[in-house]
Amino acid sequence: MKIIALIGDQPNHWGLISKVSQIATISSVVTVSKKNKNKPKSYSKITQSICALPLSLAWRKMQRSFYITDEFKGKVLKVSTNDINSDEVLDFAVNENPDLVIVSGTNLLGAKLIKELSKTSKIMNLHTGISPYVKGGPNCTNWCLSNRNFHLIGNTVMWLDDGIDTGNLIVTEKCPLTGNESLTELHIKVMNHAHDIYIKAINAYVKNQPLQNISQNKISIGHLYLTKDWNKKEIFKSLYNFYFYFSKKNVNSDNDDVLFVNIDTDNNQKT
């Protein structure tokens, strides 16, 4: 089975590839770097960055928890780009003729690329949030903190479509938490949990085991969070809720309206 990966270029994305390579052979990797717009920051943006410092530091520490050698990257990295929908990526990916494409951390794949890849392969996508309830970005864990929806901190593996985290579901899981985590520990746990369920899904596919294919619309309309809406107010709320409400009791509280998709059974489970 031929597997290619379309990923971002951050340590957590390479950490995922390293883990996947332990259970399957990845033929090639395409990395997508964020475009550097070089725009001067306004006073408001600078203030927002200062407010977000605890969250930013936690994210950076999480990234540093993944260390991948340049030697490993050199073995599988084939294309580096600023746009996953470039002609270069399209031609390369189609010529690779993969059986499975795994996606994580790229910009949104366009309909043309998805259409061409789908002719020969299945496309899996990892979302670090629980779809359909928490979709979008820039960081769904932080949105859960802001909304005090600790019970929705978790991850999703889906069959990719051209929407924002809207593909049919393979597995959704709540991240196991104690409520005693620091911000850094929280982000590390969420990311490692995301990798764990992605590897389960990939391993099942490689072994020709049946996987779920559940429309999100059959579960809930959910909510799409946009990066442009992540502002000082939401940052303050997320930090306030984390420091004053994030606890064992609130993290483990059940919600009968939340439906999780289990990778190991054809039946959904409410928790």
Rank of each mutant, 00 (worst) to 15 (best):
Q63H: 10
Q63T: 08
Q63R: 12
R64K: 08
R64T: 07
S65L: 01
F66R: 01
Y67S: 06
Y67Q: 05
Y67C: 07
I68R: 01
I68V: 14
I68N: 04
T69V: 11
T69D: 02
T69G: 05
D70Y: 08
E71D: 08
E71R: 07
F72L: 14
F72W: 02
K73I: 10
K73R: 13
G74T: 01
G74N: 06
K75I: 13
V76A: 10
V76I: 15
K78W: 01
K78L: 10
K78G: 05
V79I: 15
V79F: 01
V79D: 00
V79A: 06
S80F: 11
S80V: 15
S80D: 06
T81K: 07
T81W: 04
T81Y: 04
N82H: 15
N82W: 14
D83I: 09
D83N: 14
I84L: 11
N85T: 09
N85C: 13
N85K: 11
S86Y: 04
S86K: 07
D87N: 08
D87P: 09
D87A: 15
E88T: 15
E88C: 13
E88K: 12
E88A: 14
E88R: 10
V89L: 10
V89I: 15
V89H: 00
L90F: 04
L90G: 04
L90A: 08
L90N: 02
L90P: 00
D91E: 05
D91T: 11
D91A: 13
D91V: 13
F92A: 08
V94E: 01
N95V: 11
N95F: 09
N95T: 09
N95H: 03
E96F: 02
E96G: 08
E96M: 10
E96S: 06
E96H: 05
N97Y: 06
N97R: 07
N97I: 14
N97D: 03
P98C: 12
P98A: 09
D99H: 06
D99R: 11
D99S: 11
D99Y: 03
L100N: 02
L100C: 07
L100S: 04
V101T: 10
I102W: 01
V103I: 14
V103N: 06
S104Q: 13
S104Y: 14
S104K: 14
S104W: 15
G105Y: 08
G105V: 05
T106K: 10
T106C: 12
N107C: 15
L108Y: 03
L108M: 13
L108W: 03
L109Q: 07
L109A: 08
G110T: 05
G110N: 04
A111S: 06
A111F: 09
K112T: 08
K112E: 01
K112C: 05
L113F: 03
L113E: 00
I114T: 05
K115V: 07
K115N: 04
K115L: 06
